[in-house]
């Protein structure tokens, strides 16, 4: 199958999945709870008010009609209006998005920065102490309740030692940088504000570090596994026979090929990082989409919850596709398998 065909097929599948994602979210929001109109109106609203809302929002129409309407709105970027904040959900999410993006990307970079070297070292010396360490980190990572890790590091680094700030994106009384990208680390740089940058980085370190920890072991194990596989191949043996120094073989010949499967794991981790952000943001009072949705859950603000869900799932689907395509591009062997 040609490359173009594969891409076309993946794209078609993605469109289908996105369609399914909206349908499932719609069903959860509209079919399961007893009465969305009652939820929108609040517990104490009178029956007439509820009826009015039902008619105003078209909730008295059959489900397929409601779904068509929901889709039409969705395609216009209209996710409905939050009951709690009274603003359009899309606007709310857009406002909180940069904070979450900064957190997730920082966590991803930290996970890679720690996981790749750990994986390389454990593959270079399988069954050594460092290998045992990376294995323990990976078991701890998958077994760790993220909310607990966040809380414990808050107690230690903020409560006991007082070396890092415990909440928010900047110190109290400090002004956030002038918004260009909404990412404080970049905005402060653009403004040439070094002190602001340091402040933002210090605030970012704990939440991003906790979020990253869960994935360090995963990245390390993947790098280790694929590096070991590459190292057993013929061209490596040939290089060894030619007397190429082991270090050079590892970094020059093997690592480059081994990083392709690792990239997949990293890309796919984005979804878990987004979900993990919900927890981390809550603990560290990080003003992102995660905190927003948890507040919405507390007040059963369905338009907000469902808007968040659909946006995250769509983002996740697109990232998955992008990772697939990049891997495809980098590893010609996969192309052959279609």
């Amino acid at each position: 199958m040609s490359m173009g065909m594969i891409i076309a097929r993946r794209l078609a599948l993605m469109v289908f999945v996105l369609f399914g994602v909206t349908a499932l979210t719609f069903l959860i929001a509209h079919a399961i709870p007893g009465d969305p109109a009652r939820l929108m109106a609040g517990q104490r609203a009178s029956e007439e008010v509820v009826e009015q809302i039902r008619r105003a929002h078209g909730l008295d129409q059959p489900l397929p009609v409601q779904y068509a309407r929901y889709m039409a709105n969705l395609l216009k970027g209209d996710l409905g209006r939050s009951i709690r904040t009274g603003r359009p959900v899309a606007e709310d999410l857009a406002r909180f998005f940069p904070a979450t993006l900064e957190l997730v990307v920082a966590a991803l970079l930290l996970a890679v920065a720690a996981g790749v070297p750990l994986g390389v070292l454990s593959a270079a010396r399988p069954n050594s102490r460092i290998d045992a360490l990376s294995r323990s980190v990976s078991v701890a990572g998958v077994s760790m309740p993220l909310f607990w890790l966040a809380i414990v590091s808050l107690v230690v680094f903020y409560g006991q030692w007082g070396v890092l700030p415990g909440s928010g994106r900047v110190s109290p009384f400090a002004l956030p940088p002038r918004a260009v990208t909404g990412l404080y680390l970049i905005d402060t740089l653009l403004a040439g504000d070094w002190r602001g940058w340091l402040d933002a980085a210090r605030h970012l370190l704990l939440p991003a570090g906790c979020l990253a920890f869960v994935h360090v072991g995963l990245v390390a194990r993947q790098v280790r596994a694929s590096l070991l596989e590459v190292l057993s191949q013929d061209y490596i043996r040939t290089a060894q026979a030619y007397g190429v120094p082991p270090r050079r073989i590892l970094y020059r010949h093997a690592l480059r090929n081994a990083l392709v499967p690792a990239l997949t794991v990293v890309g796919l981790a984005m979804g878990d990082l987004l979900a993990g952000a919900v927890v981390t943001e809550t603990v560290f009072a990080w003003p992102g989409m995660g905190s927003y949705v948890v507040d919405s859950v507390a007040s059963l603000d369905f338009p907000a919850i469902m808007g968040f869900t659909v946006v995250v799932a769509a983002g996740y689907t697109v990232i998955n596709l992008a990772v697939d395509l990049v891997t495809l591009r980098l590893d010609p062997r996969i192309r052959a398998m279609g």
Partner: peptide, 13 residues
């Protein structure tokens, strides 16, 4: 479709 959601996000909704 179910797998297209991050697990925690779908479970939460």
């Amino acid at each position: 479709v179910v797998l297209a959601f991050p697990a925690l996000v779908l479970a939460m909704a």
